[in-house]
Amino acid sequence: MTNTEIDNDAVIKVLNNILEAELAGVVRYTHYALMVVGYNRIPIVSWMRGQANESLLHANEAGEMITHLDGHPSLGIGPLLETHRHDIGAILRESLDHEASALAEYHRLLELVDGRSVLLEEYARRMIAQEEIHVGEVRKMLSKPSE
């Protein structure tokens, strides 16, 4: 393999991990939106549903990248473990863990394609930027105004 070739099998494996993580995000954020109660329910539910929709878009993008490489998109879904604590703080902490896990997969993808595929490199960088924004948003939501 020369410097400019990608390892298709490794890239497809990571893209399938991303696909599964994003599909888990659809389920996770949909579930969270249903579980939110309290005074701030409406804006938080709206944000959660937006995250679910965005996760579905991200899953579709990952699937398109897989088929672009002549791979087969997974029918699997990432882990859906939860604490079964449904206060907003617990939900957001679970969200933060999920976002960090997805971000790690996008970083793995970038490592595999950096300098080898402009398409996949740009895709990975764009997704890393979006996931970093999500992580930052959730951290801000978990912060108290006095901090």
Rank of each mutant, 00 (worst) to 15 (best):
M1S: 13
T2V: 11
N3H: 08
T4Y: 13
T4V: 09
E5N: 13
D9V: 00
D9H: 07
D9R: 10
D9L: 06
V11H: 03
K13P: 00
I18H: 05
I18S: 04
E20F: 09
A21H: 09
E22F: 05
L23S: 09
A24W: 01
G25M: 05
G25Y: 07
G25L: 03
V26I: 09
V26L: 01
V27H: 00
R28M: 14
T30L: 06
Y32L: 12
A33N: 07
L34A: 12
M35A: 11
V36L: 12
V37H: 05
G38T: 03
G38E: 10
Y39T: 06
N40W: 03
R41G: 04
P43V: 00
I44L: 15
V45K: 13
V45Q: 14
W47E: 14
W47K: 15
M48F: 15
M48V: 02
M48S: 04
R49Q: 15
G50E: 13
G50Y: 08
G50T: 06
Q51I: 02
A52I: 02
N53R: 14
N53D: 12
S55V: 01
L56E: 12
L57S: 14
H58W: 01
A59N: 09
N60A: 06
N60Y: 08
N60P: 00
N60L: 11
E61S: 13
A62R: 12
G63W: 01
E64L: 15
M65S: 10
I66V: 14
H68N: 14
H68G: 09
L69V: 02
D70Q: 14
D70I: 01
P73L: 04
L75D: 11
L75Q: 08
P79W: 00
P79H: 09
P79L: 07
L81P: 01
L81E: 15
E82G: 11
H84F: 11
H84K: 14
D87G: 02
D87L: 04
I88W: 08
A90Q: 09
A90M: 03
A90S: 15
I91Y: 07
I91T: 02
S95L: 08
L96E: 08
D97T: 13
H98T: 00
A102M: 06
L103N: 12
L103Q: 03
A104I: 02
A104N: 13
E105W: 12
E105F: 15
E105M: 10
Y106A: 10
H107Q: 14
H107D: 08
R108H: 07
R108Y: 00
E111I: 10
E111T: 15
E111F: 05
L112Q: 04
V113W: 07
V113F: 08
D114E: 15
D114F: 03
G115D: 09
G115L: 07
G115W: 02
G115K: 02
L120R: 03
E122H: 09
Y123E: 01
Y123I: 03
Y123S: 06
A124P: 01
A124Y: 00
A124Q: 01
R125S: 05
R126W: 02
M127P: 00
I128L: 04
A129T: 10
A129W: 02
Q130N: 11
E132N: 06
E132R: 08
E132A: 08
I133T: 13
H134S: 02
H134T: 04
H134W: 04
V135D: 01
V135F: 01
G136M: 06
E137Q: 14
V138L: 15
L142W: 07
S143D: 02
S143P: 00
K144Q: 10
K144N: 08
P145S: 03
S146E: 15
S146G: 03
E147S: 10
